[in-house]
Design a protein around this nucleic acid. Structure first.
Lengths: 243, 243
DNA sequence: CGCCAGGTTGATTTCGCTCAAGCAATGTGG
DNA sequence: CCACATTGCTTGAGCGAAATCAACCTGGCG
């Protein structure tokens, strides 16, 4: 049974490329090894569920590669995409704390690899390593801020402005520099999901995109978006809440 | 200089009526005394600001009595009421963690008393007493869940349904039993704030209330709301997201 | 080749926003 | 004590925008 430091699993937490940015950043090798011991790394195909709303999760999920969608459903079949998660993010830890079921579901958007850590091990680690609890608290706080920002947008902005801000958000994560100062986005999302993020029907989103295109702010072709002048798009957006 | 246990300040944390439900519940007398030492209890008049968005807060705020409104503003004068806070809640701790300014402002709705704890003391306490960090993490997680629920509502429900759910939420905290099975609410909020919570103009809220009244689901008179049949109101609301 | 899911486009209706007037409660200064 | 302003709320008319319903593309895929 290989256990030495020179016979680690290729995806060991100890060698994880995201280790310095991860929730476990405060842990030394021995403490991290305890996490690693119960880690199970899985690869998910596009659209595959990582955990489902209303279930007791398999544990806590560390995103290693790809993009995860956090989604909320209701009994009428409505679905809203609440957040996207990227490598080094931790997903599904709330159920561990509130003790109940997942309030949201998570699924892979593209092909993604995720490390699942058994809940008990996380709890155990947190009691002995307060830095981890602190780090999660920081992340959780940031999530509250983000969610409140979304709420504010939903309550005050026009659909058009919300779409512009969503595009700018996506640009940050998925944007690639193109010719001149242009930026290109390869959307990881369907139109319906995009629409749910700004709280409109997908037909309406289609028309909104048409209008942005008519105004020369962006152009859409399938899942490919090009933004010729990102500064113009930013200028068209409402100012971020500076007091 | 009175310091003995039999000469405590009348509002000492050690004797706080919310001690068992507060964020400090895990602390023993000595640890809590460290918090108490830097506590400053203040009384706020209705409408008075506890801390302002964009500032470095005075610290962390423990609500002792009354109701606090958490609000977000932008440069155009828009304001959205994001959350209400009640005795034993902790407010304004996020700025402490993300290190920056408050993303929201807080103000007293009615007359309220709040204990302000210096940020440094909270940080110090958290390093020595992980239970406090864990407790904050639990609360923060609950806040994320709540905010995501609101986002879901905003994206999927009609204005009417959002108002109904808001009334049911307010009922939980502010409802008082009336004659028969009726419930009465004394709203702590202006119409404008109510409207911002469901993301509509105040004129629209007025009409929505008129319709609920016409349907016999609730009746409004100034800040007084009576709900003759709470079960009928609950039945009119969309089902909570049970999978 | 036909089927199907996802996306666009069009016609129609409903709904909420805007602008504007009216009203009640409260407060202020003469 | 009363004119008068102010604030918060309701009500109305008109308009613009989004939801709805439906048809029609388009690109896989069996």
């Amino acid at each position: 049974m290989p256990q030495g430091s020179n016979s680690r699993s290729p995806d060991s937490c100890l060698d994880c490329p995201h280790r310095a940015r991860s929730s476990w950043r405060g842990l030394d090798d021995t403490a991290l090894a305890a996490i690693d011991r119960v880690r199970r790394t899985r690869t998910y195909e596009p659209g595959q569920a990582v955990f489902a709303q209303g279930t007791d999760g398999p544990g806590v999920c560390c995103v290693r590669s790809g993009t995860l969608a956090e989604r909320r459903l209701d009994s009428d079949g409505n679905t809203v995409l609440l957040a996207l998660h990227y490598p080094s993010d931790l997903v599904g830890y709330r159920a561990l704390l509130t003790g109940g079921e997942h309030q949201t579901s998570a699924e892979a958007l593209g092909r993604a690899t995720v490390c699942v850590i058994e809940a008990a091990a996380v709890a155990e680690t947190m009691t002995h390593h307060p830095e981890v609890a602190m780090e999660l608290l920081r992340r959780s706080s940031a999530e509250v801020d983000r969610a409140q920002d979304q709420l504010f947008r939903a309550a005050t902005l026009s659909n058009r402005d919300r779409l512009i801000l969503l595009l700018l958000d996506l640009l940050r994560r998925h944007g690639r520099a193109g010719a001149d100062g242009a930026q290109a986005i390869e959307l990881p999302l369907s139109r319906r999901d995009l629409a749910s993020m700004i709280g409109v029907r997908h037909e309406t989103l289609s028309r909104l995109m048409g209008r942005l295109e008519a105004d020369g702010l962006a152009s859409f072709s399938g899942r490919h978006v090009t933004i010729a002048d990102p500064r113009a798009l930013a200028a068209a957006a409402p100012q971020p809440s500076n007091d």
